[in-house]
């Protein structure tokens, strides 16, 4: 996209007082003696994809579940669209690492299940579900059962279910970790298309540096013991140059190296 000088200056100014969809303020969480999160604060700009990146055990899932309202934090609060979170709500939808599909239900019922729980009438929710089944590329599999699908297809079902409830914040917990590398790359493209088209806020947990740099508008680098936000990185990758060129572009590789340098001490 070509912007005039004034337009881009205007956009920068706007991003300073950015519209924040989700704000994590001073959140701590202990599991018994384990300090999973300590006084964490982090903002998630609306309409963007923010990755939570860090080694396993640093509290990414815990933070995501607290934002989802599935876990209570010990201190601090979560603000979503200006209102504090007290539990799960229709403005957030979760995509699970292990898909969390109902094994006894068809793809159609699984995708519509979020709407079913919200009391939407059958014909209406199936219309909506059909649209998202189509969007994630599963048209023709409406009647299939999860055990008949590959890992990648199952995660598409999980994604379609989260999209169909039309929440404006999507929480994705390592959604691609159980799928093979080819499928994963395809997923990343699809995810970027979603971010561009859906005007939703994506909070995306990953432990892959490349994936985070490739997909994110903003990366929150988390480090363990005690878990905290070590660094916020905005990759600003120019996606117009094409998939293959991005993965070879110097700025892409520089950011990957920079993150790796920060993490190395903790991995070794």
């Amino acid at each position: 996209m070509v912007m005039s000088q004034t337009e881009s200056a205007f956009a920068d100014a706007q991003s300073l007082e950015q519209d924040i969809a989700v704000s994590v303020q001073g959140v701590s969480k202990n599991y018994g003696a384990v300090e999973a999160l300590k006084n964490m604060s982090l903002d998630f700009p609306r309409g963007q994809l923010t990755s939570l990146l860090g080694p396993s055990g640093c509290g990414k899932t815990t933070l995501l579940k607290i934002i989802a309202g599935l876990l209570k934090s010990d201190t601090g609060k979560i603000i979503v669209n200006g209102k504090p979170v007290t539990g799960p709500g229709p403005n957030r939808a979760f995509v699970f690492q292990d898909f969390a599909l109902l094994p006894w239900a068809s793809v159609m019922r699984n995708v519509a299940f979020g709407l079913e729980l919200r009391g939407v009438a059958k014909s209406e929710r199936e219309d909506k579900a059909a649209k998202y089944i189509n969007d994630v590329g599963l048209a023709g599999f409406e009647g299939a059962y999860p055990h008949e699908l590959s890992g990648g297809m199952r995660q598409r079902v999980g994604l379609a279910r989260a999209l169909s409830v039309d929440a404006n914040v999507l929480l994705l917990d390592e959604p691609f970790s159980a799928v093979d590398e080819q499928t994963r790359r395809k997923f990343q493209e699809d995810l970027l298309a979603l971010v561009a088209n859906e005007n939703k806020t994506f909070i995306f947990v990953t432990h892959s540096i490349e994936e985070a740099v490739y997909c994110s508008d903003q990366i929150a680098l988390l480090l363990p013991r005690p878990s905290r936000v070590h660094e916020i990185i905005r990759p600003n990758i120019n996606r117009a140059i094409g998939v293959e060129s991005i993965r070879r572009a110097p700025e892409y590789l520089d950011i990957v190296d920079q993150i790796w340098a920060s993490l190395r001490a903790y991995v070794e």
Binding site: A68, G69, L70, A93, F94, F96, W104, F113, L117, R118
Partner: peptide, 29 residues
């Protein structure tokens, strides 16, 4: 029952009755 099935139904706002009849019963069937 897989914990994440329970979390899934909670995150989509399942009432206790819904969780009982639509998830727990079938998962334990």
């Amino acid at each position: 029952i897989n914990r994440s099935l329970i979390e899934m139904s909670t995150s989509f706002g399942a009432s206790p009755m819904d969780a009982f009849t639509k998830v727990y019963f079938w998962a334990a069937l």
